[in-house]
Design a protein around this nucleic acid. Structure first.
Lengths: 212, 212
DNA sequence: GGCAAGGGTGAGCGGGCGCTTAGCGCCGGG
DNA sequence: CCCGGCGCTAAGCGCCCGCTCACCCTTGCC
């Protein structure tokens, strides 16, 4: 709520639940570093330095460097599922709910690009156990979007020959925003969210909304 | 042309132009290793080992590990520009050319996922000079696709309110294929190419083709 | 005021990294 | 038959990595 919960990039995040304070600062520093240089190119000394602490301090709160990535990834994926679930369970036509889901999901990827980058692109750096846990959350993400599209097809609002493939494409489009979005670029997260909601409605052949 | 130019994954690549033979084997080994584990997590010992050589052999043909990535990235991007340029300069309606460009670009990302992954996702691991060179090639990629869309808008075949944004979305969709495509999955590169060409034609509001 | 507990530090260990160097075997030309 | 050069290897250098350990300073309870 307050600006104290935002990073320099202006991203409000649900890191408030992470305690104690030093652990949260380390997690935030790790998100920044992983997003900038990638997990493997980031050193524990760099993370600790960004958090204003000595290299050894990291190991008081986290067992390994990988635990940091795991924690970040799980919190991020839970947030993603939450965003999509909220949109999917809302009232309104399938088209309205799909547009809402896409625009808020895109806003999250663009506005919280730092976090989203780590969440979406550093999955392979996790060990087998942690990766399996995250993949389960990803299946939930897929299921929420597919649910909206299936409902639109049943009600006749959408025209989609390949539901699974189209779901994949819609999610892919949203996720890739984290790769190319630039905070200093010409578009705001809100503008990209609107544009993408429009494009997705076209992809599912929605009648009478957005697409002329 | 022959199977000798293909990797175990079955990807035919233009690595034929790379000589001598040992240099090509090292480059191929680097592509595989970078795609599997990422640039920073790959060791020069691993690359040399995959090519069946000692660690020191690498430095006879390449000055640094980064030069390997640079070479791979440039060859890959040149191929990408070539694919899109060929489709853009072909004969036919804008819709036909856009569908062709998307389906062949997607086939390249899916079929040559190993190479495409390195080309699309390891850009940040390059130094400033090399990155600038590659970014110039990326602008050519963008220009080719934008050109087709602009032409379709002028001729009235397409309905696109935001040409730059839609171009970005189309390319983003294609590129992200390299992230999620799985050789052992249910879809062939050709099927994904067709599906995506259809989706893109819907995104640009193409009249009378593909989208019902 | 004594003291246990816990967050923090400085120094450093073992190891693996990118890269170098001295030298070996093979092969074509005189 | 000798030899120069090239492709390659074995060994290893210096560095920095993830992580540990012995110790310190603050805080709250009696």
């Amino acid at each position: 709520m307050s600006t104290a919960e935002e990073t320099a990039g202006g991203e409000a995040q649900p890191w408030g639940e992470v305690t104690p304070d030093a652990a949260r600062r380390l997690l935030l520093a790790a998100v920044e570093a992983f997003a900038e240089r990638g997990y493997h190119a980031t050193t524990t000394r760099d993370i600790a330095g960004r958090a204003g602490m000595s290299p050894a301090a990291l190991y008081i709160h986290y067992k390994t460097k990988e635990e940091l990535l795991h924690r970040i990834s799980r919190i991020g994926h839970e947030k993603a599922v939450d965003i999509l679930r909220t949109a999917a369970r809302a009232e309104g036509t399938p088209a309205e709910r799909l547009a809402d889901a896409v625009s808020s999901f895109v806003r999250w990827h663009a506005g919280g690009r730092t976090t989203a980058r780590v969440v979406q692109y550093e999955l392979d750096s996790l060990g087998p156990g942690a990766r399996a846990e995250i993949l389960a959350l990803r299946r939930q993400v897929d299921a929420e979007v597919r649910g909206i599209i299936e409902e639109g097809v049943r009600s006749g609002d959408f025209d989609v020959p390949d539901v699974r493939g189209t779901t994949l494409a819609v999610l892919s489009l949203c996720i890739d925003v984290a790769r190319w979005f630039n905070v200093d670029g010409p578009r705001t997260p809100e503008e990209v969210g609107e544009l993408y909601a429009d494009l997705v409605l076209r992809m599912v052949g929605a009648r009478g909304t957005g697409a002329a």
